[in-house]
Design a protein around this nucleic acid. Structure first.
Lengths: 344, 344
DNA sequence: CCGTCGGTTGGAAACGTTTCCAGCCGATCG
DNA sequence: CGATCGGCTGGAAACGTTTCCAACCGACGG
């Protein structure tokens, strides 16, 4: 393998022209047609492949962008990754995936590691945010697009959604179904999504005209099915013991919701007849689950795509003002809240 | 953002030493303790970050490796990606994800694009393989590790499993449950996994002592839930019409299996009581599905990890002989084949 | 017919790093 | 006490590319 690389000087020699001319000919800058033909022929004969490192060094661009994410196992991030990959590949960029770890400390380390001219820009969707991370991101020697909470007052390009409002939609939906004893199954409160979704729930059930009878919240260890199962067991058992079992669980994401459905079934409860369950993120897994999962779509693909486009546009126009893209949450009603009767 | 980069000459100047000494001091090669201290101090004061492109150009290594995959949406590949990422990150490498497209033509293009010194090595799990692709991979100017069919007679490092045998295990399992009318739901036959799994099924049901009554196969459009749903509808309907409905469906992967379960339910069939269903790949989604899915594990994480380790070891020792790692398939029995009675 | 201009070309510099090479110094050994 | 050796250092070259600059050519206009 790995026959010795053929370099541009070799191509130039073969074509009998100077190095500079060869470069111009291949990049289509001010070279005569005859020159272009000669050089291209020589390049083809030799099997010339331009070297990315030499080119990057000179150009000060790598045509790589990074997507940094806490947990690549989460389907939401995979969806974003797919969308980002699609957009950037089309424009000739490559995608580097970087795992941040769940703490801000390890995220900062990762950002520093990336700040070596290795990538031209960064899309980051941080689970946890603090001042140090914001500082680090501002200091980064490359454009950054944040997916998630728009960092207060910061001049970052950002893509955000209103997941608090999304939780509100889910609450309104189950109330509309006549459910009155609501449980909220959340992930860690010190995460950006956990905090926002809790706020959304508290707001929705705190309204003057709230018609529900009881509310209860449970915080799972993280945003996974297993944690959801454990959390929902506690949530359901607690309310059952209290004499008035829950008739609806609003979960902070689809994985938690699936955990909740499994927990409900363990107790012999039917979904949705006995307990309606809603998720959030509208992931593929929820769409194929049985029952199919009512979920608040935060349009992860769209957010990924928007973030990628924001980043590319900034690479083209570095000086422009920071831009923010908002994506509206939208409730997708499916079987997990739809009684056989079909009341909506 | 983007304050002007500080370069090594600047650090050297600040420390009052030569460029070469500064480099040696930072890389820990033959520099006096005093020198190291001075240079590190200067570097810290200036916030020096070594430039990856300059370093790569000189070193002829980028410390990046690529993972090329047809469809990053498939959970199997996500699992591999996670494992690979973990291994390489630990050794100081970064992971670039490359999407190949499903044809060999687009895969070849992608390999060529990567052959620009941008990555030090490549892990590829091709869906379809032909002679041209093999040629291209051999000619690639970097080490390649193949996950999947070991390319006949080729000197690639490879990680493979015997998915044909895995299908055999699934068939044996449902036969052991007393099922006698088997359907096989496969993906496209011109793919590497499709071909192998079909072979496995045909072999398993073609044995002299095969006790089953009937067999039937259906080829879905691709390896997705939707395609599985469509394919399984046809498969089930066809056999129902024939008077003897299937009592087991062996699917070529978990997504197809989930499609099959949905199709069975549409027809009012219970899983597993009326129809037992098995999948393959043992993905997360199958583990949380209701019913949980009996599946043949091909140990995707393990394969990813092995591939990454193979690649890193080759980077350290370029001349060594090609190595192959085999991973045994293993059946994971869950609810989708387990009658309430619990017969195994 | 000569000057000028636009289009092309060759040569050289530059991007930021690592490493080779030669020279220096102090120390050790004969 | 002198020669030699080892450890460090400074300087320079090299990795492969793009682009600047100066020079050249033919053609066109005055």
């Amino acid at each position: 393998m790995a026959s010795a690389r053929v370099t541009l000087p070799q191509v130039a020699a073969r074509a009998g022209v100077s190095l500079g001319s060869a470069s111009r000919a291949l990049n289509g800058n001010g070279a005569s047609p005859a020159m272009v033909a000669r050089v291209q022929a020589a390049a083809r004969e030799l099997g010339y492949q331009p070297d990315a490192t030499g080119r990057s060094l000179r150009l000060r661009r790598t045509f790589q962008i990074a997507f940094a994410v806490a947990d690549i196992g989460n389907p939401v991030y995979v969806e974003m990754l797919t969308a980002i990959q699609e957009v950037v590949a089309e424009r000739g960029y490559r995608l580097v995936v970087a795992t941040t770890g769940s703490t801000t400390g390890s995220t900062i380390e990762m950002v520093q590691g990336l700040s070596s001219g290795l990538v031209d820009g960064l899309v980051i969707s941080p689970l946890r945010v603090d001042a140090a991370l914001v500082t680090e991101l501002r200091a980064a020697s490359m454009p950054v697009v944040v997916i998630g909470r728009t960092l207060a007052g910061e001049a970052f390009d950002a893509v955000s959604t209103d997941s608090a409002r999304g939780i509100g939609q889910a609450v309104a939906h189950v109330l509309g179904l006549g459910r009155r004893r609501l449980g909220f199954l959340n992930g860690p409160l010190d995460t950006t999504p956990g905090e926002a979704r809790q706020r959304g729930f508290d707001l929705a059930v705190g309204r003057e005209d709230y018609p529900g009878d009881s509310v209860d919240s449970e915080v799972a260890e993280d945003f996974t099915v297993t944690a959801g199962l454990v959390g929902a067991r506690a949530l359901l058992a607690r309310n059952l013991a209290r004499g008035a079992g829950l008739d609806a669980i609003v979960a902070a994401n689809d994985l938690l919701a699936i955990g909740a459905i499994k927990a409900a079934r363990e107790l012999g409860l039917r979904v949705p007849q006995d307990v309606a369950v809603t998720g959030m993120d509208d992931t593929e897994i929820g769409k194929v689950f049985a029952p199919t999962l009512t979920s608040v779509s935060l349009r992860s693909s769209e957010r990924g795509r928007a973030a990628a486009e924001l980043l590319l546009s900034r690479l083209e126009e570095p000086g422009r003002d920071a831009r923010r893209v908002f994506v509206e949450p939208a409730l997708e009603v499916r079987e997990s809240t739809l009684d056989a009767g079909g009341a909506a």
